[in-house]
């Protein structure tokens, strides 16, 4: 029985899509998005997911605390987004959307989102911005869908547009 379980686990691991591991860098991405480090893996992460024309971002903890929300005082976060090589960056402002059941408010919010028609069909993007994270201003770098992990990533060129 034990061997069967091990075999099932092994098969499950083998069957997992390779990019799932790549996008979460071994951490848990609760919402199924990609994890982007904020000031180091132990400091925190931005979990990013794109659903149609909506970009969603959850600010979560560092290390093994990626299932814990990290509230920030920002009411909005402006991102400079580059989609294709040679394309000028576009600005997208994510608004704070307090998680009501988590008792969040604007000013103590961990979830941000924005809508833009041009997000539909995007295969990959890179975004930069800043956020007041853990009491300090921190640079925000997002690489979707693989996630930003400067400790492990090989430097890559700006993602190409679809």
């Amino acid at each position: 029985m034990h061997h069967l379980s091990c075999a099932a686990l092994l098969l499950g691991l083998l069957a997992s899509p390779a990019n799932a591991e790549e996008a979460t860098h071994g951490h848990i991405a609760v919402h199924g998005g990609c994890l982007n480090e904020i000031g180091g893996c132990e400091n925190g992460h931005a979990e990013v997911k794109i659903e149609g024309t909506r970009l969603r971002m959850w600010l979560v903890g560092g290390g093994n605390n990626t299932t814990t929300a990290m509230r920030v005082p920002d009411a909005s976060i402006a991102l400079a987004i580059t989609i294709g090589t040679g394309q000028p960056p576009r600005t997208l402002v994510l608004a704070a959307k307090p998680l009501i059941l988590a008792e969040e408010t604007i000013g103590a919010c961990s979830y941000f989102e924005a809508n833009a028609d041009w997000l539909a069909g995007v295969a990959a993007l890179k975004a930069t911005g800043s956020v007041q994270f853990n009491g300090k201003k921190a640079d925000l770098v997002i690489e979707w869908p693989h996630g930003f992990d400067p400790d492990h990533d090989v430097p890559a060129a700006t993602p190409a547009a679809k």
Binding site: V30, H31, G32, T67, T68, A69, L99, I100, L101, A102, E103, E104, S110
Partner: peptide, 16 residues
Amino acid sequence: NPGVTELQYDINQSTK
């Protein structure tokens, strides 16, 4: 429904 996971996440972040 992935919304179930989000509901659980939201509630588990609360202090209550």
